[in-house]
Structures are given as structure tokens and as C-alpha cells.
Amino acid sequence: DENEERIRAFALYKGIDPEKARELWERGEINKDDEEKAWREYK
């Protein structure tokens, strides 16, 4: 689903483990601007 892809995109963008990215996502600790930037680059 799209959230999974967004988490993966963010992990790649930040160079972090996707599981770590998922934890940040679930806790609401992902910066929305960074997340959008990562998503645009990923697509």
C-alpha cells in the first residue's frame, strides 16, 4: 500500500533501516517536508 511505499522511500532517502523508519512513522516523528521530498524523489 502507499504508506508502505512512503515508509520505504523515506528510509532510502534518510539512509536508515525501513523498520526504524516504520517506528518513526508510527510515533509521528517523521518530518512531513522530508517525507514529501523523499516521496517525490522516489517516484
Score class of each variant (00 low, 15 high):
residue 1 D to N: 12
residue 1 D to W: 13
residue 1 D to H: 11
residue 1 D to A: 11
residue 1 D to M: 11
residue 1 D to G: 12
residue 2 E to A: 13
residue 2 E to Y: 14
residue 2 E to H: 11
residue 2 E to W: 14
residue 2 E to R: 10
residue 2 E to P: 12
residue 3 N to D: 13
residue 3 N to K: 15
residue 3 N to R: 15
residue 3 N to F: 15
residue 3 N to S: 14
residue 3 N to P: 08
residue 3 N to A: 14
residue 4 E to R: 06
residue 4 E to Y: 10
residue 4 E to A: 11
residue 4 E to T: 08
residue 4 E to K: 05
residue 4 E to N: 08
residue 5 E to G: 05
residue 5 E to A: 11
residue 5 E to K: 07
residue 5 E to F: 06
residue 5 E to H: 09
residue 5 E to R: 07
residue 5 E to W: 09
residue 6 R to D: 01
residue 6 R to A: 05
residue 6 R to T: 04
residue 6 R to Q: 03
residue 6 R to W: 12
residue 7 I to G: 00
residue 7 I to N: 01
residue 7 I to S: 00
residue 7 I to L: 08
residue 8 R to C: 15
residue 8 R to S: 04
residue 8 R to Q: 10
residue 8 R to A: 08
residue 9 A to V: 08
residue 9 A to L: 07
residue 9 A to Y: 08
residue 9 A to W: 10
residue 9 A to H: 04
residue 10 F to W: 12
residue 10 F to T: 02
residue 10 F to P: 00
residue 10 F to K: 01
residue 10 F to R: 02
residue 10 F to Q: 01
residue 11 A to P: 01
residue 11 A to Y: 03
residue 11 A to D: 01
residue 11 A to T: 01
residue 11 A to K: 00
residue 11 A to H: 00
residue 11 A to E: 01
residue 11 A to G: 03
residue 12 L to F: 11
residue 12 L to I: 13
residue 12 L to N: 07
residue 12 L to Q: 13
residue 12 L to H: 11
residue 12 L to K: 13
residue 13 Y to Q: 03
residue 13 Y to E: 03
residue 13 Y to A: 05
residue 13 Y to K: 02
residue 13 Y to G: 01
residue 13 Y to R: 02
residue 14 K to Q: 08
residue 14 K to M: 15
residue 14 K to S: 10
residue 14 K to T: 12
residue 15 G to K: 09
residue 15 G to D: 06
residue 15 G to E: 04
residue 15 G to Q: 08
residue 15 G to W: 01
residue 15 G to M: 05
residue 15 G to F: 02
residue 15 G to N: 10
residue 15 G to I: 01
residue 15 G to H: 08
residue 15 G to V: 02
residue 16 I to G: 00
residue 16 I to H: 00
residue 16 I to C: 06
residue 16 I to N: 00
residue 16 I to K: 00
residue 16 I to V: 05
residue 16 I to Q: 00
residue 16 I to R: 00
residue 16 I to E: 00
residue 17 D to W: 03
residue 17 D to N: 09
residue 17 D to A: 13
residue 17 D to L: 11
residue 17 D to H: 11
residue 17 D to K: 09
residue 17 D to E: 11
residue 17 D to P: 14
residue 17 D to G: 07
residue 18 P to H: 13
residue 18 P to I: 15
residue 18 P to T: 14
residue 18 P to W: 14
residue 18 P to E: 14
residue 19 E to S: 11
residue 19 E to I: 12
residue 19 E to R: 10
residue 19 E to V: 12
residue 20 K to T: 14
residue 20 K to A: 13
residue 20 K to H: 12
residue 20 K to E: 14
residue 21 A to M: 04
residue 21 A to C: 08
residue 21 A to Q: 00
residue 21 A to Y: 02
residue 21 A to W: 02
residue 21 A to R: 00
residue 22 R to L: 06
residue 22 R to D: 00
residue 22 R to Q: 05
residue 22 R to P: 00
residue 23 E to M: 09
residue 23 E to H: 06
residue 23 E to S: 08
residue 23 E to T: 07
residue 24 L to V: 03
residue 24 L to K: 03
residue 24 L to R: 02
residue 24 L to E: 02
residue 24 L to P: 00
residue 25 W to N: 01
residue 25 W to E: 00
residue 25 W to H: 05
residue 25 W to K: 03
residue 25 W to M: 07
residue 26 E to Y: 13
residue 26 E to A: 13
residue 26 E to L: 14
residue 26 E to Q: 12
residue 26 E to D: 11
residue 26 E to T: 09
residue 27 R to T: 08
residue 27 R to N: 12
residue 27 R to L: 10
residue 27 R to S: 11
residue 27 R to W: 05
residue 27 R to H: 07
residue 27 R to Y: 04
residue 27 R to F: 04
residue 27 R to Q: 09
residue 28 G to L: 03
residue 28 G to F: 03
residue 28 G to C: 10
residue 28 G to T: 02
residue 28 G to R: 05
residue 28 G to V: 01
residue 28 G to Y: 03
residue 29 E to H: 06
residue 29 E to R: 05
residue 29 E to D: 10
residue 29 E to G: 07
residue 29 E to N: 06
residue 29 E to Y: 07
residue 29 E to A: 10
residue 29 E to Q: 10
residue 29 E to W: 08
residue 30 I to R: 02
residue 30 I to Q: 02
residue 30 I to W: 10
residue 30 I to D: 01
residue 30 I to G: 02
residue 31 N to G: 09
residue 31 N to P: 12
residue 31 N to S: 15
residue 31 N to Y: 05
residue 32 K to I: 11
residue 32 K to A: 13
residue 32 K to E: 10
residue 32 K to Y: 09
residue 32 K to M: 09
residue 32 K to W: 14
residue 32 K to V: 10
residue 32 K to S: 11
residue 32 K to D: 07
residue 32 K to F: 10
residue 33 D to S: 09
residue 33 D to N: 08
residue 33 D to T: 08
residue 33 D to F: 09
residue 33 D to P: 04
residue 34 D to R: 01
residue 34 D to T: 05
residue 34 D to I: 06
residue 34 D to P: 01
residue 34 D to M: 07
residue 34 D to L: 05
residue 34 D to V: 05
residue 34 D to Q: 05
residue 34 D to E: 15
residue 34 D to W: 05
residue 35 E to S: 09
residue 35 E to D: 08
residue 35 E to H: 05
residue 35 E to Y: 15
residue 35 E to V: 15
residue 35 E to K: 08
residue 35 E to G: 06
residue 36 E to T: 06
residue 36 E to S: 06
residue 36 E to K: 05
residue 36 E to M: 07
residue 36 E to Y: 07
residue 36 E to I: 08
residue 37 K to V: 10
residue 37 K to M: 12
residue 37 K to F: 08
residue 37 K to P: 03
residue 37 K to E: 12
residue 37 K to Y: 07
residue 38 A to M: 07
residue 38 A to Y: 06
residue 38 A to T: 03
residue 38 A to L: 04
residue 38 A to V: 04
residue 38 A to H: 04
residue 39 W to Y: 07
residue 39 W to I: 05
residue 39 W to D: 02
residue 39 W to H: 03
residue 39 W to C: 07
residue 39 W to E: 03
residue 39 W to P: 01
residue 40 R to D: 08
residue 40 R to F: 13
residue 40 R to I: 12
residue 40 R to N: 13
residue 40 R to M: 14
residue 41 E to C: 15
residue 41 E to T: 08
residue 41 E to Y: 14
residue 41 E to K: 13
residue 41 E to V: 10
residue 42 Y to R: 04
residue 42 Y to K: 03
residue 42 Y to E: 03
residue 42 Y to D: 03
residue 42 Y to S: 04
residue 42 Y to I: 04
residue 42 Y to F: 09
residue 42 Y to C: 08
residue 43 K to W: 12
residue 43 K to F: 12
residue 43 K to V: 13
residue 43 K to A: 09
residue 43 K to M: 14
